[in-house]
């Protein structure tokens, strides 16, 4: 459990990796080429393909990205399920409850 959390927080600590997650939120199932295109064209990130691959490997080890082989192609999918660990560890205030913090 501690190891899972360490990998998760390490993965989320980097702004480029958070940008990759943003782009996968917009559209899951991207090739490495599409992820690289989005980072360079939309975010002006001058980053090599190898570096993007390494970021994806960190995200994959945290379970936030899953890869899928489809024929000759390889796609990257978003998996937000590991984020549940955060809310379970530090529960969110219940907005609908009697002590809700709704303004």
């Amino acid at each position: 459990m501690v190891a899972v959390a360490d990998q998760l927080f390490k993965a989320l600590a980097d702004p480029t990796r958070r940008t990759i997650l943003d782009e996968l939120t917009e559209k899951s199932g991207q090739t490495l080429f599409e992820i690289c295109s989005r980072l360079s064209m939309r975010h002006r990130l001058g980053i090599s393909r190898q570096a993007v691959s390494q970021h994806l490997a960190v995200l994959e080890s945290a379970g936030l990205v899953e890869t899928r082989r489809e024929g000759r192609y390889k796609f990257h999918d978003l998996n937000t399920a590991p984020l549940r660990h955060i809310a379970e560890r530090w529960p969110l205030p219940d907005a609908s409850g009697p002590e809700g913090n709704t303004p």
Binding site: E34, S37, Y73
Partner: peptide, 15 residues
């Protein structure tokens, strides 16, 4: 298609 149409600034691409 391995990449659906994607708008990136002035350019739109697909693969």
């Amino acid at each position: 298609f391995t990449q659906d149409p994607l708008e990136m600034g002035p350019v739109t691409t697909a693969v």
